[in-house]
Simulated assay, not measured.
Amino acid sequence: MTRKIAVLIFPEFQILDATGPVAAFEIAGRIAPGAYALEVVAAGGGEIASSAGVRIMAAPLGDGAYDTLVVAGGIGTRTLGDLGESVAWLRRRASSARRTASVCSGAYLLAEAGLLDGKRATTHWSRSDDFARRYPKIRLEPDRIFVRQGEVWTSAGITAGIDLALALIEDDLGGAVAKQTAQQLVVHQRRPGGQSQFSALLDMGGAHGRFAGLMDWMRERLAEPLGVERLADQAAMSPRHFARAFTAETGVTPAKAVERLRLEAARVRVEAGHDPIDRVAEDSGFRDPERMRRAFLRTFGQPPQALRRAARV
């Protein structure tokens, strides 16, 4: 069975949001001949310029039948008023497509089309606050690489589109084909780290900046008390100066950085499913399982047990 896939683009789309999934499906189609037929579409068709200025030839939007719709993201989504035709097309075609997916800020188009109301979804972490304000009916999970809610899939920024495509390929053709596709792409079939955007978020200002060494030191001692005084002492700074400098460098307070590191470590172990929840809480520095549960609810919208069940499914 050949599955017809439409990749929707628009002026100033992010080129890798489109070409990453296209490459993954193309490679999977070579491994499993006849599995996919790919088409790039856009309002009006013709040559569509990406945000990099590179143009891709697209077919005009039509009423053809598609198995899967994939919506690219990019800075073009900042002017949603210009994308009305694309949104209306998505709303019509999604009712007949087997599944619909978005990469990065392509989630805005799905949201405008009403396809995410009442559903879990994600987008690039830098757009999360704006997205949550605009679409309060959507249960945003801003830390995730991708989220599946039934037959609607959303993913984080740029390279996460490849993670999304590999998951769609695995859903269609099984793990062996997805693994071979990932090997050809020279990427992980399943990105490590609990499939979380947290590491990327913390690395903004932290991976190579003045506090990079301190971040590594913190990760190795999550079970220990990591108050601002101890962190400042490790950084050889006064607590007040350290708190100001750390926040300016990383974009988060020291306490929030510690919590995020603990959440990242705890979520990986929770979803792995091997250790008791209370042991995870102790080892990751939350100490009290109830304290960890509250942090999970606040950040992920679900308690640890629910995430463990979802990971098993």
Rank of each mutant, 00 (worst) to 15 (best):
A43H: 01
F25R: 02
T123V: 06
A121Q: 08
A37N: 03
H124A: 09
V103S: 06
F25K: 02
A49G: 07
D67L: 02
A111D: 06
L116H: 12
S86K: 02
G84L: 08
G45M: 13
G74H: 06
A52F: 13
G45D: 09
G106D: 07
A49Q: 12
A107I: 13
E26A: 15
L83I: 06
T77L: 08
D67A: 15
A94L: 07
M57F: 02
D129A: 14
L61P: 01
A107L: 12
G46M: 05
I27N: 04
Y66I: 02
Y36Q: 03
G46Q: 04
R91M: 06
W125R: 08
A101Q: 12
R91D: 10
A113K: 04
W89V: 01
A97R: 03
L83D: 01
A59E: 08
T123D: 04
D130N: 05
L110I: 13
I27P: 01
A65Y: 13
L69R: 01
A97H: 06
L38N: 04
I27T: 09
A107K: 14
L38R: 03
G46F: 02
A23M: 13
R55I: 02
A88R: 15
A42D: 00
R99Q: 15
R91L: 04
S86G: 15
S126L: 11
M57R: 05
R92T: 10
A32I: 00
L90T: 07
G64Q: 15
G106F: 06
R30A: 13
E47T: 11
A94Q: 07
G53N: 09
G45W: 01
E112P: 07
L116E: 10
G74T: 14
R92D: 12
E26W: 10
V87Q: 06
E26Q: 12
R127F: 14
D67T: 11
G62H: 03
A107Q: 11
T77A: 05
L115M: 10
T100F: 05
D117K: 15
L90A: 07
A23I: 05
A72C: 08
W89I: 01
L38H: 05
T100S: 14
A42L: 02
M57E: 09
T79Y: 12
V71H: 07
R127Y: 14
T77R: 09
R30D: 10
L110N: 08
A58Q: 01
S95N: 03
E112L: 09
T79E: 14
A113C: 14
A59T: 08
L109H: 12
R120S: 12
R98P: 02
F25Y: 15
G118F: 13
G64K: 11
G53A: 13
S126W: 08
V71M: 08
A97I: 06
S50V: 13
S96W: 04
G84R: 14
S126I: 10
L115C: 07
T122H: 09
S51L: 09
A111S: 12
R30K: 15
D130H: 09
R127P: 02
R78M: 06
G44W: 00
R120Y: 15
V71R: 01
L110P: 03
S95M: 04
E39S: 14
E39L: 02
A52M: 12
A72V: 10
A32E: 15
R120T: 09
A32V: 03
R30L: 13
W125K: 05
I31Q: 04
A65M: 09
A58G: 03
A72Q: 05
A23K: 12
V41Y: 01
L80A: 08
S51A: 15
R30P: 03
E85K: 14
R99K: 12
I56N: 03
E112A: 08
